[in-house]
Every structure is written in structure tokens, then in C-alpha cells.
Design a protein around this nucleic acid. Sequence first.
DNA 1: CCCTTTCTTGACCGTAGAGTCAAATAAAAA
DNA 2: TTTTTATTTGACTCTACGGTCAAGAAAGGG
Lengths: 188, 188
Amino acid sequence: MSRTTDFDKEETITKAMNIFWTKGYEGTTMRDLQTATGLQKGSLYNTFKSKENLFLLCLEKYGANSATLFYVDGDPKNYIKKFFKRLVDEGVKEENVSGCLIMNSCIEFSNTKSAPAKKSKDLFATVEKNFENVVNAIKNKTTHDTHELKTNLITAAFSIREISKFKKDKKFLKQIANNVLKELDIAI
Amino acid sequence: MSRTTDFDKEETITKAMNIFWTKGYEGTTMRDLQTATGLQKGSLYNTFKSKENLFLLCLEKYGANSATLFYVDGDPKNYIKKFFKRLVDEGVKEENVSGCLIMNSCIEFSNTKSAPAKKSKDLFATVEKNFENVVNAIKNKTTHDTHELKTNLITAAFSIREISKFKKDKKFLKQIANNVLKELDIAI
DNA sequence: CCCTTTCTTGACCGTAGAGTCAAATAAAAA
DNA sequence: TTTTTATTTGACTCTACGGTCAAGAAAGGG
């Protein structure tokens, strides 16, 4: 009945997501998106309406993927340990300057009331909730208040992600992690 | 012998600094700078050479001012307490979305090798050193390692400054502060 | 195989960015 | 007051941005 799209929409969103993740929203040009996706301007606009709308879809995809990473299979404390170890190990890599797309976007859009500002803040709240769920899964908890621990965990994650973008200092980043992990009597 | 400048250079840098602080480097246009300083483009370029060079002068001024804030007059522990109380109180204000110019710039320029990237990282290191000096001024120290405590303090400051740009949650921000202050047996 | 409908292409548009420059202006020395 | 020299002005350039659109291409139902 009519011509169909030549490309996979989800795949294209993933490719765009990776560019936005690395370069930020303003730092990414339509030309960057064309190059990354292999599509022409018209196709991108025809399918995704606008740069901002495409970005919102990328945020959504990033959030959905992030959520799956919070599925705890096994000991929650060990999960948290591995989670932070990965953050530090990825963070110190010289080529890694991306941080976390959700946190990056919260910062980038902080002085706007735009749709991306709202969506990134919502996703940040979801990540908070995910941390809380992990904390709740810990058995034999000591006296630690769940909310406090959750706050400390997401703050440490935020700090490692953002500081590692410009400070490739493993000792420093490990210290951030261990400062919160000591509340769980663990260390990396 | 020749015409002199009609304006105060340092005053102009301060005005420019406040714009960069609020809007970021990329987010600030030459038009913003003209409006804020009351000068025309040509004068700005004639005096400061380029947007980037003006920004470097702004970073320097911000750093110099920041350094004066680390002069501890009295009990260092009380100084730290007031320091973090101010960070939280300023952070929750709805109109405050500025954070810290040094930390903002470290993030904004993290994926470049530009002069502002270098200068902001240098200033971050200076702030670290300033925190270390305050820690060293604490008498009757418990077993806390100086470097660890310094790292925890600057990380908490970073987190409060950046997270408060998009999350106006006093309980959350206070928790970040108190989590590090408890190492000094104090709280806000 | 044709027709309808949608997708694809890339030239094009308007706007806004940083930076330039020649002419006008004014401070201060002589 | 004149001369010298630097500053001030704003119109200008060039480039890059996000976004549009008319024409051509192709998928798939009939």
C-alpha cells in the first residue's frame, strides 16, 4: 500500500542516544546525528519530528536500559559492590568522558523548564527508587535508615559519574565509593 | 597622549563572570555579555581578545574569590559546618541554578582539551588543596586520614552544588552534608 | 504490472552565533 | 587649540545551526 521505512527505529534511537550521551544535547548537531545514524535530515525529521523529541526518546531508552541494570540477582550487598567497582573502573578510562546521560541531562537542562528537564528529573527519581529497592533487599540490615543509605548511594554514584568525566584519579574515585560502601561493611 | 578606556576592566570581568556562572560558557552569547557589561562588541574584543579569553579571566577571578572564602577565622570545624550550611541554604533557593563556576566548567569542558578545561581543572585542584588546609587546621583530630576527609568534603561540596541545580530537596541536600560532617561529629 | 502512499533525498531557508573593521570619537600631551 | 593615539561604535562577514520542502524513489496491495 505504501513505502516502508528502510531502517530500524529502535536501532536509530540507540545510535542517537550514544551521541547525545557523549556530546550532550546542545553539543550534538543534526549533522552528528545524520553521521551516526546513516540517515538524512529529512528522514530523521519525518520519523522523530524534532531534535528535542528524538532526545526525549533517547532519554527514555537510556532510562529503560538503566532500570534493567538494577535487577538484583543474588546478594544485594555484593551487587552494590560490583556496581560501584564498575563505575570506578569505567570512570578512570581515559576515553570515557560520558558520565550518565540522565545525570548529565539533569545538569544541562537545570536552568530550563523544558520537556527534557522534566523527563531527566523524573528519570533521576526513578534511579533513586531503584537504589531504594536494592537497599530494601538487603537482609540483616544494621541500624541504617533506608532513605539515608539510598541518598548516600545515589549521591556517590552521581559524584563518581560526574567527577570521573574530568578527574581520572582512581584513588579519589575509589574513596568516594568506599566512603558509602563502608556503611555496608564492604569495600572495593 | 591617547584616549583611555571608559570602563573598569575588573568590574567588567565580574559582570561577565556572573553571566558565565549562570548560563555556562556555551550558553552565554556575546549579546548576553554586551547587555551585562553595557559595552559594545568591539570594546569587548578590543579589551579581552576573544570570548574564550574573557572566560579564562572570569575563571581566574572566580578562583581568586573562592580562595578568600577559605580563610578560616576561628574554629575550623565550625567553619566547615557554616560552609556546608550555606551551600545547602543557597542550593534550595528556587532561583539559584548556578552551582559553582569551577565545577560547572570542569563538567562543561570535560570532553575537550581546551584552555578552559585545563584552567578549571587546575582551580578544582586548588579548591581541593584549600579543603586540605582547613582539615589540617583541625586540632584534636581523631583517626581520620587527612586525604580521605579532604576527598569526602570536596565530593560533598560538589554533589550539593551540582545536585541542587536541579533537585531543590532540602532533606536530600542536608543528608549529603551531614553524611560527611558526621566524620567531624557535627551536623547542620 | 500499476497505482497509491509513504519514505528518502539534498538543496534550501531563516536565524543566530563569534568575530572583524573602518569610521567616528574623545582623552591628554604638546 | 592642535595633534596623536587609542577607544568606541555598529554594520558587516562568515559559518553553522535547526528545520522545511518539493521532487524522486520504492514498497506492497490490487
